[in-house]
Design a binder for these strands. Structure first.
Lengths: 272, 272
DNA sequence: CAGTGGTCTAGACCACGCT
DNA sequence: GCGTGGTCTAGACCACTGT
């Protein structure tokens, strides 16, 4: 039966009651929340209403259901930090040591994980620039590009997927054009250095949204967890204006990663 | 009645069918989707199942329900871009022109909106550093701080909320200590300049999650939209190591904002 | 086996928005 | 007034997990 609605609905009251108890620490990460049947009894509601209450917490990423076992308070894994100064470290190694590939890539160093702990799925193909990528590259749509699709895993968990593009005219016939050499020691910047392109500027745009179904399955994203989406351009040349790489769809589950950026300001008295 | 479950559930099939049609452009942003009753008829399911299908799309931020009217394909407002180089521009004006407040603040300039278009809610109070803020500031917990809570509005829409902290020992007795002068012309960096602190480094950490209930109401966040959370430190001094401001809870609805960062790399041959 | 969450049905009353 | 989404009920069968 229906009923008047001046106060907030029953299911929301129950959800907020549970949320409060989670915040207070009555239920700690990993703990089992009351079952749907227990909530029915306790709050004198039908199962649908009890279930809806738990659905609120699941949609907010606070709780996670396990088939046949119950609903648990989600534990948030300590997030991996991805720092922007990894780019500076990479390019320093190259400028100082020359373009011999250094032994580490920013991906492993940033996380402090060993090579053996991670894995890379890769898929290369030739394609033409679509409108968005052409705009980012500063070329015409249809421009021949090498498309590289990557999925990074660490500790058995997928950490990010990306679509990256290089000008085919730049890489064609070089070791960069094939997937065999990935992961490239020293990473993207070292790779571009072998082509004579010293990256002098990296631009990243960060946004967030809920994941698409294929992202959920590929990255094994729990319900209620958004993704960070990053669009990246790598630029080279003394004027930092030659676009040498574009990655327009870097997708990162937001429950495992924090993006760190440092902006050093020029405070000298001379205009730049 | 229940039934076997080899394929994906009915409600998910219906949801994916609708998602496909949205992606294909059969339903465009702003269009009305079939009503729950229409989906019942069309797919021969109960209302609960039809409703659940639409719930999937709403949870993913693809659709939005309007009471008494129907469920619509969500239009994504063109996102405001917040660029990291706003900091460099702010500090340049100060270094070149001295600490007279320049006429614009980064917030208005970044968006290209007029002063009259935006509004600032502010709430100042003295407090002691909690553990997290103390860690970020590099001081002991309990250190006296000025806490400033802001909510920014633009075009009548709330754009972000933040908790910002300054050392009370630095600002006490100055015009900065009171909310009356906010919004401060020239923004945070100009404000710190009047205290003799030239900001030489800004650090930002970006993450994402689903919003809390109070964030949903304060920022008017539609269901299915995550928030970007930014933690910021402003540092001063030639060694860029004196923390002068900490904002540990900047919350930004992800449907209205993209964060842009540019990292210029030092590619000179001298070690830095 | 008992208990859990996942799915589905059929029916009800409500508040809202438009015509 | 009529159609819409929002809420709630009571009951059912299913698949999965643990003992």
């Amino acid at each position: 039966m229906g009923q008047g609605r001046r106060e907030s609905p029953r299911y929301r009251q129950i959800a907020e009651y549970l949320r409060l108890r989670i915040m207070r620490g009555d239920y700690r990460p990993g703990d089992l929340l009351p079952s749907e049947r227990a909530l029915m009894e306790e709050h004198q509601v039908s199962r649908g209403t009890a279930r809806q209450a738990l659905a609120v917490l699941r949609a907010d990423g606070l709780a996670q259901a396990a088939m046949g076992r119950g609903v648990f308070v989600r534990e948030q894994a300590p997030a991996r930090r991805v720092a922007s100064d990894r780019y500076q470290r990479e390019v320093r190694q190259i400028v100082e040591d020359g373009p011999q590939p250094p032994p580490e890539t920013s991906f492993t160093r940033t996380q402090g994980i060993e090579w053996s702990d991670y894995r890379l799925d890769k898929d290369f193909r030739d394609t033409g620039a679509d409108e968005e990528v052409a705009e980012l590259f500063g070329v015409s749509p249809g421009e021949p590009l090498l498309e590289r699709r990557f999925v990074f895993y660490a500790q058995g968990e997928p950490q990010q997927m990306s679509w990256s593009y290089l000008l085919l005219s730049l890489v064609s016939g070089t070791p960069v054009a094939g997937p065999a050499n990935e992961p490239w020691p020293g990473g993207n910047i070292a790779q571009l250095a072998t082509l004579g392109k010293i990256v002098s500027r990296v631009e990243e745009s960060v946004a967030a949204r809920m994941p698409l179904p294929d992202e959920v399955s590929t990255l094994r994203i729990p319900p209620g967890v958004p993704v960070l989406t990053v669009t990246r351009r790598m630029l080279a040349g003394p004027d930092r204006d030659e676009v040498v790489e574009v990655a327009n769809k870097i997708v990162i589950p937001a429950d495992r990663t924090i993006m760190d950026y440092a902006v050093d300001l020029d405070v000298s008295s001379d205009p730049p």
